[in-house]
């Protein structure tokens, strides 16, 4: 073996041993943390998309309840209301809901037999808004009043506010969990750095006495843990991406599972994980190493 050693081909070996028995456990822990962080991010994106989908459907439409006045029949009143509403700028289409459908909506409450023909069942008019410039509820109410129709406009704003509030909470919760995981990862890395520095104390001292600057030594540990974290991030992100892909496939053709719609594009969100993990690890290892090196110099 020694005869084969050729100084002309020699390259400097890593100053810290390439393999450390503790590295396996560290990579595992960081990978699990990255996996959880990615799942949180995917969940957050899905919740966001779900909320946007629901509010989008709701903002695009309004429901108007028309009550007949005087001798006018409910159907005629509804027809007039639809006409009046169609003329409002920002309304794409206004349609009366057929009597049968209105009855079907009431049936569960009143029962089939109770639905007498002369019972003044309110008629519904559904309004589809112009997607670009939707009409406001106030504008619709104004138009109905001008036409002398007794009606209530429901533009679903109550629902929308609820959904948006829930989505907002989900977003903040996701961010909170994400930060919590990042700080847990940083703490683990800091701990591992201190352990590694204790294990390699002799190496550090020899480097120090040979004239290595503190930063030279700090960088060794910083690089080492950044690499380990990048690898862990790759594992964690891949795991989360697989789960995300399974959710997407399980969601059927449109990928819109009712609770958390995952899109293929969402999977891209896990891509920066190795870099983020490396960054967090580098900073944590750097701070820990600088703290300990300070005592030497």
């Amino acid at each position: 073996m020694s005869e084969l050693f050729d100084p002309k081909r020699w390259r400097p070996a890593p100053l810290l041993p390439r393999r450390d028995p503790r590295d396996g456990a560290l990579v595992f822990v960081i990978a699990v943390l990255c996996f959880l962080a990615c799942l949180t991010a995917l969940g957050g994106l899905a919740a966001d998309r779900a909320a946007r989908g629901w509010t989008g459907q709701l903002t695009g439409s309004a429901t108007v309840v028309v009550r007949a006045m005087g001798a006018e029949s409910p159907d005629i009143a509804a027809g007039r209301a639809a006409e009046a509403l169609a003329g409002v700028p920002g309304v794409a289409e206004a349609r009366t809901l057929e009597k049968e459908k209105a009855e079907a909506l009431l049936e569960p409450w009143l029962g089939r037999d109770a639905l007498l023909d002369d019972l003044p069942i309110p008629r519904l008019v559904t309004v589809e808004m112009d997607a670009k410039q939707p009409a406001t509820a106030a504008a619709l109410t104004q138009a109905l009043k001008a036409a002398g129709i007794d009606a209530t406009v429901d533009d679903h704003s109550l629902w929308i506010a609820d959904i948006e509030r829930a989505a907002g909470i989900a977003r903040w919760a996701a961010l909170g969990v994400f930060l919590l995981i990042a700080s847990a990862a940083a703490a683990v890395i800091g701990f591992a750095t201190r352990a590694a520095m204790a294990a390699h104390r002799e190496t550090i001292e020899v480097l120090h006495l040979s004239g290595a600057k503190a930063d030279f030594v700090v960088r060794l540990f910083q690089t080492r843990f950044a690499k380990a974290a990048a690898l862990a991030g790759l594992f964690g992100a891949s795991g989360a991406a697989i789960i995300g892909a399974l959710a997407r496939l399980a969601g059927g053709g449109q990928g819109l599972t009712p609770v958390a719609p995952v899109a293929w594009i969402d999977l891209v969100a896990v891509a920066p994980t190795p870099f983020l993990a490396a960054l967090v690890a580098a900073v944590a290892a750097r701070l820990a190493a600088q703290g300990l090196i300070g005592e030497l110099a």
């Binding site: 050693f5 100084p7 020699w10 400097p12 070996a13 100053l15 190496t203 020899v206 040979s210 004239g211």
Partner: peptide, 15 residues
């Protein structure tokens, strides 16, 4: 105070 995980060559090259 040689570094045990480095070869003789690497130890001498260290400074």
């Amino acid at each position: 105070r040689l570094l045990d995980h480095l070869t003789a060559f690497d130890n001498v090259a260290l400074p």
